[in-house]
Write a protein that binds this DNA or RNA. Structure first.
Lengths: 103, 103
DNA sequence: CAGTATCCCAAATGATACTG
DNA sequence: CAGTATCATTTGGGATACTG
């Protein structure tokens, strides 16, 4: 839970399931997260070796994030959480897809 | 994450996997949680219909907690999280079993 | 573009003592 | 036994502005 317990960590991992993403792509996928939070949680995930950050020394800057092999091991759990969440919302009478991006 | 994101919720669910437990049994299983927190998170789980609380009107009081059918649906995820956590600790060089009760 | 810096607030948790 | 009450503290997160 320390690893994916943050407010956006699971969503970030979820977004990276389908491949490498640049910073602003993640930002678009998780618009509720402010730059500060996004940066913070990305760093957390990087420190936990769930994701890897690749910085291209070009102007303008280009950064790419992707799951590490270890991070991949988390994918089934994140997906399970996601579909359980859908089920939960159904039971609660509020059907919402996995692409749910917050209120 | 709102459901199991609390500090002890997942541990409580994990403890209830093997059957009904009384309050003090859960307390023993999750000793880091103060009575206040335990009570609070138990209520949360009850409101989310993950667990059910049965109060026996006897003296001294007797209360039992168990997973609802809906709560059972969470078990595979909690177990997956647990074993992933073990794996995580191994990778980090700190092998710790699922019965890990905090520092 | 990909972030940082600074300030602030609310929620979560902890400690301790008490009760039906 | 199974909690509550009260108070203090920590932590997470938000808003906004700025930068290499």
């Amino acid at each position: 839970m320390d690893v994916i317990g943050g407010k956006y960590n699971a969503l970030i991992v979820y977004e990276l399931i389908n491949g490498t993403r640049r910073y602003h792509e993640i930002q678009k996928a998780v618009p509720q997260a402010t730059p500060r939070m996004l940066s913070k949680q990305l760093k957390e995930l990087e420190e936990d070796e769930i994701i890897i950050r690749t910085l291209y020394p070009v102007v303008p800057p280009k950064t790419e994030y992707s799951l590490t092999e270890f991070g991949q091991s988390l994918v089934p759990i994140v997906e399970a959480l996601c579909s359980w969440g859908e089920h939960y919302f159904e039971v609660a009478g509020v059907p919402i897809p996995c692409t749910y991006t917050g209120s």
